[in-house]
C-alpha cells in the first residue's frame, strides 16, 4: 500500500530536482526490464538527432512495473513517450484523460510494437524432468515458477500462453483449457510479484524445475550466470508478446516535443534501432536484423492475444478481472 505512492513521489521528486535546461529533453516511461535496452538505444538516438538537427537532446528514463508506470503517467507524470510490454498499459492512457490518441496502434508500423518476444521454458542443466511441452508442466511432481499473473505482465503472458496452446490442442474447448491451466498452477509453489523476482527464486533459491519467462530474460540469465547451470527449452507452440510504444499526445503538445518524441519512437523501428533491439535478445521486426541474429531466435510457432484469444479487453474481462477465470482457478487449488 505504501510502495506505490512512494515510488511515484520519488519519480516526481527526481524529475523536479533535474535542473531546468533550455535544451530539448524527452521522458521515456517504460517497464521494468527494458532498462538495459534503452541504455543502449538512447545514446544512439541522441547521436543521430544531433547529426541531423544540429541541436542537443537529453533522454530521461523511468522504469518500474508496467501497470504502475502507466498509473503514474495517468496521474500526471509528464512522459513524452511510453514504452510498455502490453497494450492494456497504453489503452489505460486513452481511457484516463485521453492522454494518448485512441488510434495509437496505427501511428507506427507493426501495431506500434517495435519488437516482440516469446514465452519460453528455462530448465536446469540436462533437463532432468524432461520438460518439452506445456503439457509436461502440468504433470504431478513438476514444480513450475511463474510470476504472479495479477501483478506481472510476464506472468499474464505465461498464463495466456498455457491457456492458448491448450485451447488449440483441444480444438477450442475452453473447459479443457481451464482444466489444464488449473493443473499447471497447482504446480506453482511461489508467485513472485514480477519477472525478476521469479528469476531470483528459480536461479538463486533453487526452487522449481522450470521457470517460464520471456526469451530475452532467459537469454539474460544465461549470459549472467553462464550457460552451464540452465538451458532454454522452446515449447512447440507459445505466445508472442509484442511491446507497444506510443507518443503521449497531451504531454508533447504541451511541451512542444512532438517532433522529437515521434523521431525517437521511429528510431526504434529504424535498422539501427532494430540492431540494438536484436542485440538485447528481443525479436526485431526488421527481417535483416532477424536474419543477422538468426541463431538467437530459433523459429517457433506462436499465437498472439489478438489473433487467438479475442484481444486484451476480452482477456482482461474474462480471465484477470476479480472473480475471473484466474481467480476461480487459484481459489480452487
Amino acid at each position: 500500500m505504501r510502495a506505490l505512492p512512494f515510488s511515484t513521489l520519488l519519480t516526481v521528486l527526481t524529475l523536479l530536482a533535474l535542473p531546468v535546461r533550455a535544451e530539448l529533453s524527452l521522458l521515456n516511461v517504460s517497464y521494468d526490464v527494458s532498462r538495459e535496452l534503452y541504455k543502449d538505444i538512447n545514446p544512439a538516438f541522441v547521436a543521430e538527432w544531433q547529426a541531423k538537427k544540429r541541436e542537443g537532446i537529453t533522454l530521461n528514463q523511468s522504469h518500474g512495473g508496467s501497470s504502475k508506470q502507466a498509473l503514474s503517467v495517468a496521474a500526471g507524470l509528464e512522459a513524452d513517450v511510453v514504452t510498455m510490454n502490453q497494450s492494456p498499459d497504453i489503452d489505460i492512457l486513452v481511457e484516463r484523460g485521453a492522454l494518448v490518441a485512441a488510434d495509437w496502434q496505427r501511428r507506427f508500423p507493426h501495431e506500434s510494437a517495435p519488437y516482440t518476444t516469446v514465452s519460453v521454458f528455462l530448465v536446469r542443466r540436462g533437463n532432468p524432468k524432461g520438460l518439452k511441452d506445456w503439457s509436461d508442466l502440468a504433470r504431478p511432481g513438476v514444480s513450475v515458477i511463474v510470476p504472479n499473473p495479477k501483478t506481472s505482465g510476464n506472468g499474464r503472458y505465461t498464463y495466456l500462453a498455457a491457456w492458448g496452446q491448450a485451447l488449440q490442442k483441444h480444438g477450442g474447448n475452453a473447459a479443457e483449457a481451464r482444466k489444464f491451466v488449473a493443473a499447471l498452477f497447482k504446480n506453482v509453489p511461489v508467485l513472485d510479484g514480477g519477472g525478476r523476482g521469479a528469476t531470483t527464486t528459480f536461479t538463486q533459491r533453487d526452487i522449481g524445475d522450470v521457470l517460464v519467462t520471456f526469451e530475452n530474460e532467459a537469454a539474460l540469465i544465461a549470459d549472467e550466470l553462464g550457460n552451464a547451470a540452465f538451458e532454454v527449452v522452446y515449447p512447440p507452440l507459445t505466445i508472442e508478446a509484442a511491446a507497444p510504444v506510443a507518443v503521449v499526445d497531451k504531454v508533447v503538445d504541451k511541451r512542444g516535443t512532438r517532433e522529437a518524441a515521434t523521431a525517437y519512437l521511429n528510431f526504434l523501428f529504424s535498422p539501427a534501432g532494430q540492431q540494438i533491439i536484436a542485440r538485447h535478445h528481443f525479436r526485431p521486426r526488421d527481417p535483416a536484423a532477424l536474419k543477422q541474429y538468426a541463431a538467437r531466435f530459433p523459429p517457433v510457432r506462436t499465437f498472439t492475444v489478438e489473433n487467438a484469444l479475442g484481444g486484451w479487453a476480452n482477456v482482461q474481462k474474462t480471465h484477470f478481472a476479480d472473480g475471473g477465470i484466474y481467480d476461480q482457478i487459484v481459489e480452487q487449488r
Partner: peptide, 23 residues
C-alpha cells in the same frame, strides 16, 4: 511469503494487486 492465493497472500498484496489492475 510465496504469495500463493488462499495460503500465503497478505491483505496489502491484495490491495497492490487491485491497483495494478487499475481497480
Amino acid at each position: 511469503a510465496g504469495n500463493i492465493p488462499m495460503v500465503s497472500e497478505i491483505t496489502p498484496l491484495m490491495i497492490i494487486t487491485k491497483l495494478e489492475q487499475y481497480d
